[in-house]
């Protein structure tokens, strides 16, 4: 697209959509543009919606967005679904629950496949957040894949995280609680029209008794399908964002996520550009043989190889 950068500044919908595609495809020119425009981002508040598949995350997102639209806020939505590890394809079906939002000019919805990335989001999700931020969205809601144990990405990408549970998870709560319970700033028990909501509420409350933070995560029972409890849930979200702001924790969270993002980019670049398997193939082959025959060990071999690669690449890097 011609003058993509200028069009992004002018908040063109088509340019924003194309930018996200290019980020997903790891197009270096998109990353360059994002680097140039980075100082214009950071205005949108980012809300993460996570929880097991089928919990009602998409339905809930639809209702939360309608609540924000009533307050005249513009909202971007990033809905992530799993990519099939076999075909590399995916069915991105979250929009089914958000049909009414498709023609709202104050809403931009983008569906993404994980494309092999673990952790509940795709590698390009952070970039897509920046693109929607540039597009002028006041809030950006990210719906994660929801595969259970590995929803760790959302914490470093979102300012506030809503954990969506449903009644009758029973033993699953026990399994989920390790790790997962710590990431929720707010707990929504969706499908409260079903039996067992009160029990699930008590179980979550018991677990949260062990949380030692100033912010005590609220628990809200909701029925997303019937728009019940949504106003309360939205208030908790806005309260939490406000709490982060007034206690200076928003910036702390963002410093933390920036730290992680920089480290990740460095690691990625090291792995992709410096430690290319094809470049060290011969040495690697020799080392692998030696290690297999117990003439060397993998610990020392990796150190030796690394030293070799780094000295060689350092020279190239300076010339580049």
């Amino acid at each position: 697209m011609k003058d993509l950068k200028g069009k992004l500044i002018k908040k063109s919908m088509k340019a924003t959509a194309r930018m996200i595609t290019m980020l997903e495809n790891q197009d270096p020119s998109a990353i360059e543009i994002l680097a140039d425009l980075y100082s214009l981002t950071g205005n949108a508040k980012v809300i993460g919606i996570t929880g097991p598949p089928g919990a009602g995350k998409s339905t809930l997102t639809d209702k939360l967005v309608k609540g924000l639209r009533k307050k005249d806020k513009k909202v971007g939505i990033i809905a992530v679904d799993p990519t099939s590890p076999f075909s590399g394809g995916s069915i991105l079906g979250d929009r089914i629950r958000m049909s009414d939002l498709a023609t709202d000019p104050g809403v931009f919805i983008r569906s993404m496949g994980t494309r092999g990335h673990l952790g509940g989001l795709s590698k390009a999700t952070q970039g897509a957040v920046k693109a929607l931020d540039l597009y002028g969205m006041d809030y950006i809601i990210i719906e994660t894949v929801g595969v259970g144990q590995s929803e760790v990405d959302i914490v470093k990408t979102a300012d506030t995280v809503v954990m969506v549970m449903v009644p009758g998870l029973g033993d699953d709560i026990q399994a989920i609680k390790a790790g997962i319970m710590e990431i929720g700033d707010i707990f929504a028990i969706n499908k409260a029209d079903r039996d067992g909501a009160a029990k699930t509420h008590r179980e979550i409350a018991n677990m949260l008794d062990f949380v030692e933070k100033d912010w005590k995560p609220p628990i809200e029972q909701v029925v997303a399908l019937q728009n019940q409890g949504i106003d309360n849930l939205l208030n908790h979200i806005l309260d939490h964002l406000n709490y982060l702001d007034t206690t200076n924790q928003l910036i702390d969270r963002r410093i933390n996520s920036s730290r992680i993002e920089i480290m990740e980019l460095m690691k990625e670049r090291l792995m992709e550009d410096f430690i290319k398997e094809e470049d060290i193939q011969e040495d690697l082959e020799v080392c692998a043989r030696e290690v297999a025959q117990r003439e060397n060990n993998p610990y020392r071999a990796s150190e030796e190889l690394l030293k070799k690669v780094i000295t060689k690449e350092a020279k190239n890097y300076e010339n580049h």
């Binding site: 959509a17 069915i91 079906g93 919805i109 569906s111």
Partner: peptide, 30 residues
């Protein structure tokens, strides 16, 4: 499903879409 199995990313919007919904979705999803 067939397109997914052929390695494509398929955005499925469900039933009863108006032309405008389809067009806006096509743009946003690029």
């Amino acid at each position: 499903r067939a397109l997914r199995d052929a390695g494509m990313e398929v955005v499925y919007t469900g039933l009863r879409q108006t032309p405008e919904q389809i067009v806006q979705t096509a743009i946003q999803e690029d």
